[in-house]
Structure formats: C-alpha cells, structure tokens
Design a binder for these strands. Structure first.
Lengths: 361, 361
DNA sequence: GCCTGCTGTAGAAACGCTTCTAAAAACATC
DNA sequence: GATGTTTTTAGAAGCGTTTCTACAGCAGGC
C-alpha cells in the first residue's frame, strides 16, 4: 500500500471483499454480521482511510457539488455585496448536508465557453446569482440539462427556470403607499441598473401605485441610475438643478440613496428637511455609515438558503419543474423620510440625518 | 448513445480507437495524420462532446481544483471583507488557468472533521484564509499531504507552511515613524484580535519603534480590541475617560478606527483637533463613509493572486518547500492625523473630519 | 432428499477517461 | 526481398468507487 489507503487496502486488512468493505463503510452494516462490520470499521480507522470522492462521484454518477455562478457582469466578489449574503445562505444549507460548493466566476460572455466551464460533469446543479438581461447564464437550456436555480432576478416565465427572489413588486408598492400616506405627492424616483429585472420591477411597482392614487408621474423626476452610489449622486445633482423639486425621492436601492444623500450634503441641502430620500435593500453599510435610511429590508441570506433547498429537492426527487419563490420584504422606517406637511410647517435647521442611536452625522 | 456523449461515442463516430480520440482531443494531434485529427475534432464538435472532468480527474490523479478555506472562526463571508478581496485575486489567477475553486467554510473546529472535508481527493491544494491561532486548519500536517498556502496570517516558522501576507511589521513601523515625525509623543494604541498573528505583529512593531525613539509606552493607553468596530468604540470610551490623553491613537485596523472616531463624534470630541486617529488596511468602507482616515494601504487582491500563483507552482514543480512572501504596504496620509504641535497652536473648533473631496461629514 | 427462501459474502462490470505498451503499417536500407 | 527503423494506431490496464448479480450455506416444509 503506497500512497493513500484505498478501499482495497481496508478490505485486505479486514479480510473481506471490497464490496463488503464498501457497504459497511457506507453505513449498510446491517447486511453483515456484527463482527464483520467491526473488523471493517476498525481496519478503516487504523489505516486512516477516507473515501476518494472523485472515484465515488464517477461511480455514483453524482458529485454532491453545487456550482454557485456569478454573472460575468459582476464577477468581482468584492463589488458584489448581494452575492456575499446569498453565498452565506447557500453554504449554511449545503455544508451540513455534505454538499460542496464550486465557485464560478466566468470571465467571458460566450455562452458556450461559460457552460463548458460550468457543466463539465463536476456538479449536480447550479445556482445562478442575479443573472442580468441577456446574460449568457440564461442560455443554459442550450448547453446543459442540469437543475438550475436563479436568485436575485425574477425572470419572465419563458426562461423556465426555478427562481428565488425577494418580492420587489410588493415591497416597492408598500414603500410607495407609505410615502404617499406620509403626505407626499411630489415623488421622484431613481431607477436601478437597466439590465436588472429587479430595477424594472421596482420602477413598475412605483408607477402602478402612483397611478392607483391618481398621482401624475413627472418624467423629469424619473432619473436613470445603475445601482451604484455614483449614479445616485449624479441623479441628485441632476434633480437639484431643477426649478421645482419633489418632496421625496425613492431610490431603487440603498447604494444610490447613499450617493444621493451624500451629494445633498455636499450641496448643503438638508435631508430630510429639504428633501426626503428612501432606499431599498436595507444594506448593512447604510446603517454602518450612520445614515438613518428609510428602506425595505429583506433577507438575502434566506434567499440563498431557500435556493439551495429547492435545488437539492430537485436533485433528490428529480422533479425539475421550475419553481418560483418570492420572499416578502419589510418596510423599515427610519429618519430619511419626513412627513410632507409637518415639515413644511416646522422646519428645523439643525436636524440633519440621524443615526439610529440618535447621534448627529 | 444515451445521455451525454462520451469519448467512446466520439471514437466510434470518427472511426478510430478511444486512445486516438483522447490524444487528439487533448491537443496531441501531431501524433496523428492530419485527416485523422480532423475527423476526431469534427466528430467531437458534432456530438457536442465535453470531457467528463470527474473521470479525467480520476484517471489523471489530479483534479485541477483548489480549495479556498475560511477559518471556522470567520466562516461567514458577509462578515469577512478580507476574504472577498483575496478570493477575487485567487479567482483571477486560477480561472484563466482552468482551475476550479471549491469554497469551504467549516462549521466545526474538530480538525479531523475539517480535514476530512477538505482533503477527500477532490482537490489538488488549498489556500487557507487567515487562520487564527489554534485553528484546526493549522493542524493540516497531521491529516493531509496536500500543498497548502496560508494567507493573511504570518505564522511562526514551525508551521512549515507557505505563506503570503502583507508586511505588517514594516507597515506599522512606518506608520509609527511617520506619526512621531508629525510631532506626536503621546501615542495610544488599540490592539487587534488576540488570536490573530497580525494583531501581535502590529503591536510588536509599534512597541519596537517607540522604544527605538526612546518614547515610553503608557500601558493605560494600550487598549485591547478585536478588529471589530465596536471594540474601537469602547476603546475610545475607555481612553477618553482618562485624565491625560494621547495626542494620537493608532488603531490596528480601520474598522476599529472607524468605531473609535464615531465614538469621538458621539462625545463631541473633534478628530483630529482634540485627538488624532490612524487606522490600518485602507478599507473601502472607511473611504465610503467619508472618513478621511490616515492608514496603511495594502493590496489584498494581490495577496490572493500571489497565493494562487505559489500554490500552482508547487503543484507543477512538486517543490513543496514552504515559501514566504511579504507584500509591502503604503502609508496613506489623509486628515485624521494632525501635526501635533501646529494643532496645539492653532485650534480650529469648526474643522471636523473631512472627506478626501473636502466636504464636511 | 428435493425445492424454496433466507442470509452473508464475493465477483465482476461499470463509471469515462488517461496512458503504458505493443502491434501493425509504412518506409528506408543494403 | 529480408531487415531494421520509424510512424501511426489500437489494446488493455489502470484510477477507486458503487452496485448488480450470483453463489454458497443453511434452515424449514413437503
């Protein structure tokens, strides 16, 4: 026996066949007499035997490995905060179930190359993180028969893909409802990345609720962003140049809200006194930065966790019918949105944005 | 041919042996006549053949997969900003070289279980991310013969482990030198996590340079932290309670510096007017938060990139001698540290901390 | 004593590929 | 035309598992 001990070594030492050793080590001891089982277990332990997972995968025709695939557009983990939370959720579900994770960050957008990389026999299924419109990831059907779950993008039905996402539509709707309830009628909006479905959903929900309340939408207050804080800042610059201003601006995510607010600061425009700002996502970093942002909180960790759960369910049952799961968000009211009328009556030049603890920025 | 096409299918279609097909598809066309090679290549293309990587791994006895292992103490990716940058660097190096990444986040500290998980034949080598003192990861020699590189922890030599890390010692030394040069003599220090080697190195460098300059260290100004911003804040609280204060406090990382500064704000103690604060790491988030923190910048991405490079080199050459690589950091002077004497002369009650762009916090 | 039905065990094929070894074919040499 | 040399191709033995199938041995029922 040179190198690592194999099943044959264990069998030899226990004085039995490879079959017997294999069965017992897989927990099928009840097939054998007590002493046989013990002999094998002891032999394995004495040799420090560990089953070779590659050989096992080949024989079993399954690898107990799941790929987590980032969109080529967002292949840098550093800049993809969303992916961290989702990954943690995925890991939390898979690790105890002895599944492994293969992290794939394609550097190209050629679908054939991307899928050759993903589906090369080494994984049982894949979780696609926030595929954008036109992403090569979405062409999987042409290249793969693997079970796949997409997260972070609520795709049109024709993609025939299992999905887990937050309920962008409902969450944004409740945000708009709430803002209106606070007395706001002049409402601006900063849109998200045009290639993200979530951006369109959030905008659509905004427009719908506005229409339901008979509030006209001023297109000059609808600003294009891309989910990055810089575009939030430039949206602020662009908006604040106008003669007439909205009383509140809803940003399609927190990043842009942060950018927006920081630009307001630079221009010495107090938030929420002069203008209210709301975000979406309840990012850890907005809180960390001491910005008491009114926003929508949702559980990205949970998204990852559920995606992993669905994927494993599909693997185990073979039921590959696309499933869709929407997780509700929750409105988090902090201080970046003020009552529309009250503020007009009682302006307070000293109040700026407050942290949750109440300290001044 | 049912299911995916195999090498046998390709060979059959091309009318040659499996050997021939295998060789040609691996790029050894020169062994064969031109037309044979073409036939095989065409057959493979027509069938949409993709080599099964599990079978290949078994036959080749190498998997072209590297494990990236987080310390069980820091298994949540969300809370491990360091890991993101390193991972990006690792991915950037490995992806073009057709290596895959297995992400492992052990949930237990039992070394046998951890290593059974890591070294089960499915990887060729491992990169350990910032193993802490006493980590089960460091006991690898008892459980594995895999090539391993540790990053983010400059370990004592006896671990016999290849390492890539930033040069904590030199970087902290230059920070201390600079601060002294700015006229400071009353210098406090907030220590990092007691289980991290980096924390000890940074502290040791601090003490050494202080001694070199003949400046006595006041132990009541040496505060224990754990690299988290909360401990930075409590260090501030603890320090500011004292009668005599240092003119500058060096924090062992940016997180703690941020916490420290935020506590100062809460207590309405102007930084750097009343007290200067420096950090270490040049975290993206300090910049984002508009804190113009004087700190040490270093390239975590590069750390990951080099670690991957070293690991692959070891795999390819078989040269497993532990290598050590230190990456220098660079002092980044911003505004959170003021000249010690100038400030005493010209106090400016209105100046608080400034962002790089010059805007007020 | 023959058949049936257990139980405990082993043999052997399969998974899909790589690669060592050797045979067949082609060519050159004298 | 026999011999040696080189090129081209194929056979077959792995890699370390799993698992299907079969085969002893033995009890009980007729």
């Amino acid at each position: 026996m040179r190198g690592k001990p194999t099943l044959r070594d264990v069998a030899e030492r226990a004085g039995c066949s490879i079959t017997t050793a294999s069965n017992i080590l897989q927990g099928r001891s009840h097939l054998y007499r007590e002493d046989m089982a013990q002999r094998v277990l002891n032999a394995a332990h004495e040799l420090g035997y560990r089953a070779n997972s590659v050989a096992r995968s080949l024989a079993r025709r399954r690898t107990a490995t799941i790929a987590v695939v980032l969109d080529p557009q967002h292949a840098r983990l550093t800049h993809n905060v969303y992916a961290h939370d989702v990954l943690d959720g995925v890991l939390a579900y898979l690790e105890p179930r002895d599944y492994d994770i293969r992290l794939i960050t394609p550097r190209t957008n050629d679908p054939a190359a991307v899928w050759r990389r993903i589906d090369n026999g080494s994984i049982d299924g894949a979780i696609l993180i926030a595929p954008v419109m036109g992403s090569s990831l979405l062409e999987w059907r042409h290249y793969s028969t693997l079970p796949v779950v997409a997260v972070g993008s609520t795709l049109p039905d024709e993609y025939l893909l299992s999905q887990v996402d937050i309920d962008n539509d409902a969450a944004m709707a409740s945000m708009v409802e709430w803002v209106i309830q606070q007395g706001h009628r002049a409402i601006g909006f900063v849109k998200g990345h045009p290639l993200h479905w979530s951006a369109h959903q959030r905008e659509r929900a905004f427009r719908r609720v506005m229409a339901q309340h008979g509030i006209p939408i001023r297109e000059e207050w609808m600003l294009q962003g891309d989910y990055g804080s810089e575009t939030g800042a430039s949206a602020a610059a662009q908006l604040l140049r106008q003669d007439e201003l909205p009383s509140v601006v809803l940003c399609a995510n927190d990043e842009m809200a942060i950018g927006f607010i920081q630009k307001c600061r630079d221009l010495e425009i107090p938030v929420p006194d002069a203008i209210s700002v709301a975000g979406f996502d309840d990012s850890y970093w907005a809180r960390r930065m001491g910005i008491a942002l009114t926003t929508v909180q949702h559980d990205r960790y949970q998204v990852g966790y559920l995606a992993a759960q669905i994927l494993l369910h599909q693997l185990e049952t073979g039921d590959a019918r696309p499933q869709r799961m929407l997780i509700p968000g929750a409105l988090v009211v902090r201080r970046s949105v003020a009552l529309a009328n009250v503020l007009a009556a009682v302006p307070d030049p000293h109040a700026t944005i407050l942290t949750e603890g109440g300290s001044r920025l």
